[in-house]
Amino acid sequence: MWEFVNFYFIPGLVLGCIYALGALGISLTFGILRFANFAHGEIMMLGAYFTFTIMGLTGWHPLVAALPSMALAALLMLYLDRQFFRPFRDSPTIMLVIASFGLMLMIRSAVWVFYGTQSKPLLRGFQRPTQYLDGAIQFPDKHLWIFLTTIVIMLAIWYLLTRTKIGKAMRAVSDSPELAKLTGIPVETVIRATWIVAACSAVAAGVLLAIDSQLDSLMGFKMLLPMFASAILGGIGRPFGAVLGGLVIGVAEELSAYPWIGVEPLLNPAYKTGMAFAIMVVMLIWRPSGLFKGRVF
């Protein structure tokens, strides 16, 4: 029983938090800019590398070093939007998708040039799990940080979207860009705000993933599938649906390796990412609008 909680359920939730943060950004940009941003994973990865560099320069804790990384990534994202996405604003969606695909390859190559292709740890040393409830539940402190950071960021984004003027305008543009224009909402300003939020949440997801495992130039790319699966499961364009989708997929991936029948893992852990794919395929067939009635095109 405790083995189930400690080795499957808690790691599943941790993974789910990271997917949730990533999927939130994808869903938000999709809702407002109407395209699937393939470069989102690379911004995650780049943010983790920025954090690595800042940690090297200052010796700060990764979660502190992540703050200036967020600012850097947000500025970069605004620049990239201007150069890569804004010229295609009124073009067919597929052009934006292809542009984001190209951007993904460029960012990754740039990281290879500056940091090399070797993966490296963000946190050094082995972390001994902390024990709770007389040792029944145990997990390393870094998992606690991942939970707490995710909750703080989710609350901040929830507050932004439901309580602030610019956040409500973001939801309005997501709802109907045409009406937003007629209402006098400056759509370009809203788009910039969206990129800032997307970049910050992506950096958070990237840093948490690097804390949980390690820095790897392919980490963003590997996250794309589960993040898109999470966004689709929650209903694309529904940021908080994406959060739930991320948690469900994270937990489902880990639980797929639990020895439900006999003593062998139900699914070889090497295949657990397949769960995200399976869930995405099932959702697209059975209910493409997701759990929370997202957009279907």
Partner: peptide, 28 residues
């Protein structure tokens, strides 16, 4: 901004926003 407001025939409310949020957006 010059003080002309236009209500289109269809698609004239933000369906996912609450009534109050719609009014707030009107005052954007």
């Amino acid at each position: 901004r010059l003080g002309v407001c236009y209500v289109p025939q269809t698609g004239n409310v933000f369906v996912n926003l609450s009534v109050q949020e719609n009014l707030e957006m009107g005052a954007f």
